[in-house]
Protein backbone atom coordinates (compact mmCIF):
# COMPACT_ATOMS: atom_id res chain seq x y z
CA UNK A 1 0.00 0.00 0.00
CA UNK A 2 1.37 3.42 -0.86
CA UNK A 3 1.73 5.75 2.10
CA UNK A 4 -0.16 9.02 1.75
CA UNK A 5 0.91 12.27 3.37
CA UNK A 6 -0.13 15.92 3.59
CA UNK A 7 1.79 19.16 4.12
CA UNK A 8 3.26 19.24 7.63
CA UNK A 9 2.99 15.49 8.20
CA UNK A 10 5.99 13.80 9.78
CA UNK A 11 7.27 11.09 7.44
CA UNK A 12 10.07 9.67 9.56
CA UNK A 13 12.70 10.49 12.16
CA UNK A 14 15.10 7.94 10.72
CA UNK A 15 18.33 9.32 9.29
CA UNK A 16 17.46 9.63 5.61
CA UNK A 17 18.07 12.29 3.01
CA UNK A 18 15.26 14.70 2.17
CA UNK A 19 14.28 14.39 -1.50
CA UNK A 20 11.66 16.27 -3.51
CA UNK A 21 8.78 17.77 -1.52
CA UNK A 22 10.37 16.78 1.78
CA UNK A 23 11.77 19.14 4.38
CA UNK A 24 14.31 18.31 7.08
CA UNK A 25 13.14 19.98 10.28
CA UNK A 26 15.62 19.16 13.05
CA UNK A 27 15.72 15.37 12.98
CA UNK A 28 12.33 15.04 11.30
CA UNK A 29 11.49 14.60 7.63
CA UNK A 30 8.30 16.50 6.88
CA UNK A 31 6.12 16.37 3.77
CA UNK A 32 5.42 19.65 1.97
CA UNK A 33 2.77 18.26 -0.38
CA UNK A 34 -0.34 16.15 -0.65
CA UNK A 35 1.19 13.02 -2.07
CA UNK A 36 2.69 9.56 -1.90
CA UNK A 37 5.85 8.71 0.05
CA UNK A 38 8.61 7.29 -2.10
CA UNK A 39 11.77 5.82 -0.55
CA UNK A 40 14.70 4.94 -2.76
CA UNK A 41 18.11 4.11 -1.29
CA UNK A 42 18.53 6.56 1.56
CA UNK A 43 16.36 9.32 0.12
CA UNK A 44 12.77 10.02 1.09
CA UNK A 45 10.65 12.02 -1.32
CA UNK A 46 6.97 12.73 -1.84
CA UNK A 47 5.31 12.38 -5.24
CA UNK A 48 2.80 15.22 -5.38
CA UNK A 49 -0.73 14.40 -6.57
CA UNK A 50 -1.44 17.96 -7.74
CA UNK A 51 0.37 21.12 -8.67
CA UNK A 52 2.34 22.55 -11.54
CA UNK A 53 5.37 21.14 -13.30
CA UNK A 54 8.82 22.21 -12.10
CA UNK A 55 11.09 22.28 -15.17
CA UNK A 56 14.19 20.06 -15.20
CA UNK A 57 16.86 20.06 -17.88
CA UNK A 58 16.43 17.32 -20.50
CA UNK A 59 12.76 16.67 -19.70
CA UNK A 60 10.45 16.19 -22.66
CA UNK A 61 7.48 18.54 -22.37
CA UNK A 62 4.41 19.38 -24.42
CA UNK A 63 3.84 23.13 -24.61
CA UNK A 64 1.49 25.62 -26.22
CA UNK A 65 2.57 28.85 -27.92
CA UNK A 66 1.02 31.76 -26.01
CA UNK A 67 2.94 34.71 -27.49
CA UNK A 68 6.08 35.69 -29.29
CA UNK A 69 8.56 38.53 -29.54
CA UNK A 70 10.79 39.21 -32.52
CA UNK A 71 13.39 36.79 -31.12
CA UNK A 72 11.50 34.00 -29.36
CA UNK A 73 8.22 32.23 -28.70
CA UNK A 74 6.75 31.96 -25.23
CA UNK A 75 5.22 28.60 -24.36
CA UNK A 76 2.83 27.56 -21.64
CA UNK A 77 4.42 24.38 -20.28
CA UNK A 78 2.15 24.00 -17.22
CA UNK A 79 4.92 25.43 -15.05
CA UNK A 80 5.20 28.51 -12.83
CA UNK A 81 7.33 29.98 -15.61
CA UNK A 82 6.82 30.30 -19.36
CA UNK A 83 9.20 28.37 -21.56
CA UNK A 84 11.28 30.31 -24.09
CA UNK A 85 11.91 28.86 -27.51
CA UNK A 86 14.48 30.93 -29.35
CA UNK A 87 13.90 31.77 -33.01
CA UNK A 88 17.44 30.61 -33.82
CA UNK A 89 16.43 27.16 -32.57
CA UNK A 90 13.85 26.94 -35.34
CA UNK A 91 15.27 29.08 -38.15
CA UNK A 92 18.93 28.20 -37.60
CA UNK A 93 21.91 30.40 -36.87
CA UNK A 94 21.33 32.85 -39.73
CA UNK A 95 17.93 33.85 -38.36
CA UNK A 96 17.23 37.51 -39.10
CA UNK A 97 14.40 39.07 -37.14
CA UNK A 98 13.53 41.51 -39.96
CA UNK A 99 13.24 38.82 -42.63
CA UNK A 100 11.89 35.74 -40.88
CA UNK A 101 8.37 35.90 -39.58
CA UNK A 102 8.01 33.78 -36.42
CA UNK A 103 4.32 33.08 -36.95
CA UNK A 104 5.13 31.42 -40.29
CA UNK A 105 6.59 28.53 -38.29
CA UNK A 106 4.62 28.52 -35.04
CA UNK A 107 1.41 30.45 -34.37
CA UNK A 108 -0.54 31.18 -31.21
CA UNK A 109 -2.17 28.03 -29.90
CA UNK A 110 0.22 25.67 -31.67
CA UNK A 111 1.29 22.69 -29.61
CA UNK A 112 4.90 21.52 -29.65
CA UNK A 113 6.86 18.63 -28.28
CA UNK A 114 10.02 20.16 -26.83
CA UNK A 115 12.89 19.50 -24.49
CA UNK A 116 13.94 21.65 -21.53
CA UNK A 117 17.45 22.90 -22.40
CA UNK A 118 18.19 24.55 -19.08
CA UNK A 119 16.51 26.08 -16.08
CA UNK A 120 17.72 27.60 -12.84
CA UNK A 121 14.77 29.58 -11.42
CA UNK A 122 16.53 32.92 -11.86
CA UNK A 123 15.60 32.93 -15.52
CA UNK A 124 12.71 31.40 -17.41
CA UNK A 125 13.36 27.91 -18.74
CA UNK A 126 14.86 27.68 -22.19
CA UNK A 127 13.42 24.96 -24.36
CA UNK A 128 14.47 23.47 -27.66
CA UNK A 129 12.82 21.58 -30.51
CA UNK A 130 16.11 20.92 -32.26
CA UNK A 131 16.08 17.13 -32.19
CA UNK A 132 14.26 14.36 -33.95
CA UNK A 133 10.71 13.68 -32.75
CA UNK A 134 10.52 17.25 -31.44
CA UNK A 135 8.57 20.13 -32.99
CA UNK A 136 5.05 21.11 -33.85
CA UNK A 137 2.30 18.57 -33.09
CA UNK A 138 0.05 18.48 -36.14
CA UNK A 139 -2.73 16.14 -35.14
CA UNK A 140 -4.47 14.61 -32.18
CA UNK A 141 -5.74 16.00 -28.94
CA UNK A 142 -4.17 17.52 -25.84
CA UNK A 143 -4.89 15.65 -22.61
CA UNK A 144 -3.86 17.04 -19.21
CA UNK A 145 -2.95 15.24 -16.01
CA UNK A 146 -1.05 15.98 -12.80
CA UNK A 147 2.70 15.97 -13.55
CA UNK A 148 3.25 13.69 -10.53
CA UNK A 149 1.21 10.99 -12.24
CA UNK A 150 3.13 10.94 -15.52
CA UNK A 151 5.34 8.08 -14.32
CA UNK A 152 2.18 6.01 -13.80
CA UNK A 153 1.08 6.76 -17.36
CA UNK A 154 4.45 5.55 -18.64
CA UNK A 155 4.59 2.55 -16.31
CA UNK A 156 7.55 0.26 -15.60
CA UNK A 157 9.79 0.30 -18.66
CA UNK A 158 6.96 1.92 -20.56
CA UNK A 159 4.58 -0.99 -19.97
CA UNK A 160 1.50 1.12 -19.28
CA UNK A 161 1.76 3.40 -22.27
CA UNK A 162 2.60 0.44 -24.50
CA UNK A 163 -0.53 -1.32 -23.32
CA UNK A 164 -2.61 1.75 -24.16
CA UNK A 165 -1.02 2.28 -27.56
CA UNK A 166 -1.33 -1.38 -28.52
CA UNK A 167 -4.97 -1.62 -27.48
CA UNK A 168 -6.05 1.55 -29.27
CA UNK A 169 -3.57 2.11 -32.13
CA UNK A 170 -3.10 5.59 -30.67
CA UNK A 171 0.22 7.41 -30.57
CA UNK A 172 0.81 9.26 -27.32
CA UNK A 173 3.47 11.94 -26.86
CA UNK A 174 3.90 12.28 -23.10
CA UNK A 175 5.36 15.43 -21.62
CA UNK A 176 6.86 15.25 -18.13
CA UNK A 177 4.82 18.41 -17.49
CA UNK A 178 1.57 16.40 -17.43
CA UNK A 179 0.47 17.31 -20.92
CA UNK A 180 0.12 14.54 -23.48
CA UNK A 181 -0.79 14.67 -27.16
CA UNK A 182 -2.92 11.70 -28.19
CA UNK A 183 -3.53 10.96 -31.85
CA UNK A 184 -5.31 8.06 -33.46
CA UNK A 185 -6.74 7.21 -36.86
CA UNK A 186 -9.99 5.95 -35.38
CA UNK A 187 -12.31 8.04 -33.24
CA UNK A 188 -13.05 5.01 -31.08
CA UNK A 189 -9.37 4.39 -30.38
CA UNK A 190 -8.87 8.04 -29.47
CA UNK A 191 -11.81 7.91 -27.08
CA UNK A 192 -10.54 4.77 -25.35
CA UNK A 193 -6.98 6.09 -25.08
CA UNK A 194 -8.23 9.35 -23.55
CA UNK A 195 -10.43 7.40 -21.16
CA UNK A 196 -7.50 5.25 -20.07
CA UNK A 197 -5.37 8.32 -19.40
CA UNK A 198 -8.24 9.80 -17.39
CA UNK A 199 -8.37 6.63 -15.29
CA UNK A 200 -4.64 6.90 -14.59
CA UNK A 201 -5.02 10.55 -13.58
CA UNK A 202 -7.69 9.55 -11.09
CA UNK A 203 -6.29 6.26 -9.79
CA UNK A 204 -2.54 6.65 -10.35
CA UNK A 205 -1.39 5.09 -7.08
CA UNK A 206 -4.19 2.65 -6.43
CA UNK A 207 -3.28 -1.05 -6.26
CA UNK A 208 -5.67 -2.15 -9.01
CA UNK A 209 -4.62 0.46 -11.56
CA UNK A 210 -3.81 -1.89 -14.43
CA UNK A 211 -7.20 -3.63 -14.13
CA UNK A 212 -9.01 -0.31 -14.20
CA UNK A 213 -7.03 0.79 -17.25
CA UNK A 214 -7.76 -2.49 -19.01
CA UNK A 215 -11.45 -2.08 -18.40
CA UNK A 216 -11.29 1.49 -19.76
CA UNK A 217 -9.52 0.19 -22.86
CA UNK A 218 -11.95 -2.71 -23.21
CA UNK A 219 -14.69 -1.42 -25.43
CA UNK A 220 -15.54 1.80 -27.21
CA UNK A 221 -18.95 3.32 -27.69
CA UNK A 222 -19.98 5.72 -24.93
Amino acid sequence: MPRTVMPGDTITREARRAGDNVLLDGDTLVSTAVGIVNVSDDTVSVIPLSGKYMPRADDLVVGMVISHTSQAWELDINAPYVGFLLATDVFGRDFASHADELTSKLALGDLVAARVANFDRTRDPLITIDDRDLGKIDSGELVKMAPGKVSSLIGRQGSMIQAIETATDAAVTIGQNGWAAVSCESADGLLRAKRAIGVIDQWAYSPGLMDRVKSALGHGGG
Binding site: G109, L111, G140, E141, A181
Partner: peptide
Amino acid sequence: SILDGLKRKLV
Protein backbone atom coordinates in the same frame (compact mmCIF):
# COMPACT_ATOMS: atom_id res chain seq x y z
CA SER B 1 -6.86 32.53 -22.68
CA ILE B 2 -5.72 30.82 -25.82
CA LEU B 3 -7.30 27.63 -27.04
CA ASP B 4 -4.79 25.20 -28.46
CA GLY B 5 -4.87 24.85 -32.23
CA LEU B 6 -5.81 21.16 -32.23
CA LYS B 7 -8.79 21.79 -29.96
CA ARG B 8 -9.86 24.69 -32.16
CA LYS B 9 -9.80 22.41 -35.18
CA LEU B 10 -11.65 19.71 -33.25
CA VAL B 11 -14.40 22.18 -32.31
